[in-house]
Design a protein around this nucleic acid. Sequence first.
DNA 1: ATGAAAATGGACTCTCAAGTCCAGAACTGC
DNA 2: GCAGTTCTGGACTTGAGAGTCCATTTTCAT
Lengths: 194, 194
Amino acid sequence: MSLTAKGLATRARIVEGAADYLRGTDDGEITLDDVRALTGTSKGQLFHYFPDGKDELLLAVVRLEADRVLDDQQPYLGDLTTWASWERWRDAVVARYRAQGTRCPLNALMGQVGGVPGAADVARTLVGRWQGHLADGIRAMQATGDVRADLSPERTAAALVAGIQGGVLLLRTTGETAHLEAALDVLLDHLRAS
Amino acid sequence: MSLTAKGLATRARIVEGAADYLRGTDDGEITLDDVRALTGTSKGQLFHYFPDGKDELLLAVVRLEADRVLDDQQPYLGDLTTWASWERWRDAVVARYRAQGTRCPLNALMGQVGGVPGAADVARTLVGRWQGHLADGIRAMQATGDVRADLSPERTAAALVAGIQGGVLLLRTTGETAHLEAALDVLLDHLRAS
DNA sequence: ATGAAAATGGACTCTCAAGTCCAGAACTGC
DNA sequence: GCAGTTCTGGACTTGAGAGTCCATTTTCAT
């Protein structure tokens, strides 16, 4: 099955339509009929472009959203070499999730659509890259003497990722960004104070 | 509908059976037929004890597990007055979740069975109490001069809760306790260094 | 003991949603 | 323009699982 330009467009429309819908839902549930209605397509098309059915479609959505996660934190995430950059990154993260309210595409997808085979791998890759960027930033700050040298970049970066994930999870259940901000601020304080 | 001793026992058997099953599953899915098979009951009984059906049953499970979360951290969580106690608490948390492997009753329930009405309230209460215990511990340490007085107990406690939640979430997707331990250790370092 | 209330078993219905199938339309390359 | 391929539409099948219903059994209170 090779795809023509028209086919590619339709396929993309399906994935993006599903992603949009999932971004606006709390429970992370979606049916193929929802997708059909949303994207003006038919069952035949759905299974034409995603022969393995719903799982394959959802995996495509997960990949799309996973890419967005890091993109939304750029350009700061890729250049955490000054405190100002760290601050802007922190604000970007909070803003991104605050805008999303109680919904979170990825967190929701991993949790509720966690049954999708392959989704865990996407998540692992994402976490690894995220943590890598943060660790790079910490190392950069250590190089300039802004952060104590005896602090483990990887471990601290891991704590940051965990704090953000937990903060978002709590945002989803409480509707408040308090935990997310607390986690970010306390950990940034830790970097500064060191 | 009042319950006799026998009825109460059956009801409890149903809830605990469902909880046990959910604790041993990755996706957090369960059907009423699963519950039936697991607990040796009939459809009639299920709806006799839980007239509102599956949601009511799952809410009972959520409440049961929520209680366990804090219980498992005792007696340390209630008496965080020395560094030794903090250490033991930290170890208890890691041990608890390591034992659970990639499954986590509450985290899974909140995520996947998040659609259960009322579950969010249970989660909020749990988080509040958890954070309260931690904040109390931090205040106690401040009183003895072990922790700097200008550190916000609530905010630091919030960061801890977020870090744990995120750590557990990542444990569920990666199978490693690395993030959980990193979050706990870095934040405890922060308390100590202050 | 006996009538009422509670407990139990299981067959049945109903709905929802995934996935199948195939016929016809549109496009592609030559 | 024509043969092959891709794209589209929608009716249909299938399965799972929640919830209903009622007959039967057990327990409780007096």
